[in-house]
């Protein structure tokens, strides 16, 4: 059992070990959806929601698998649960905000293959968090993801006004920006203990 305090779990997941910038999880949406601030924030919210749902489910699955004594089924169960959670979020968003549904486009179903979410489920198992700790961890990781995505979107909106050489357009300049951002986040190392 892990006895880390809830606040330190949150700060650790959101800032110190930011999922995107220091653990390299969820890079695809980070590069793909970070062109506009508004979409970035909404994508972040969708990810937080999916993270909370799949974190709870993963906790449940773990108990069931421990009782059944079949730990090798863990990966398959996790991914199936995440896929269904994403489907759920997709239906909810389509019903309540068709505009947002169109704005997120292909990246909504792709949350399924967002490694941040599967990574979260795997890490919380590895760290043996209890139920409350799992929820806080999911919330922190989601907040960190949204933070990184929003900052990046802000930077890319500014970048539109700058003159970028032809060959550096797109992925290359975005990655170098991400590197600088990641450098800035390294300043938080040691904060959460």
């Amino acid at each position: 059992m892990n006895t880390e305090s809830l606040s330190s779990i949150f700060i650790n997941a959101a800032i110190v070990n930011n999922f995107v910038l220091s653990m390299f999880l969820g890079i695809c949406p980070f590069l793909g959806v970070s062109a506009k601030k508004e979409t970035a924030i909404r994508m972040g919210l969708a990810v937080i929601f999916v993270m909370l749902v799949s974190s709870m489910c993963a906790y449940g699955i773990n108990i069931v698998l421990d009782i059944a004594g079949t730990p090798y089924l863990r990966l398959i169960c996790y991914i199936a649960v995440i896929a269904s959670a994403v489907q759920l979020v997709e239906m909810v968003i389509k019903k309540f905000s068709p505009a947002l549904f169109r704005a997120l486009g292909i990246f909504l179903p792709l949350i399924t293959t967002n490694c941040a979410i599967l990574g979260l489920a795997l890490f919380q198992t590895q760290k043996e968090y209890n139920f409350l700790q799992c929820l806080v961890y999911a919330l922190g990781a989601g907040a960190g993801f949204t933070l990184a995505l929003t900052i990046m979107a802000g930077m890319r909106e500014k970048l539109d006004l700058a003159e970028v050489p032809d060959i550096a357009q797109g992925a290359a300049i975005t990655l170098i920006l991400a590197g600088i951002l990641s450098l800035a986040f390294m300043g938080f190392a040691g904060l959460g203990g």
Partner: peptide
Amino acid sequence: PPGGFFVLGLQILFFN
């Protein structure tokens, strides 16, 4: 981590 972003960015630049 930042090194990974920088090197990949520069290599994509080079391949382009």
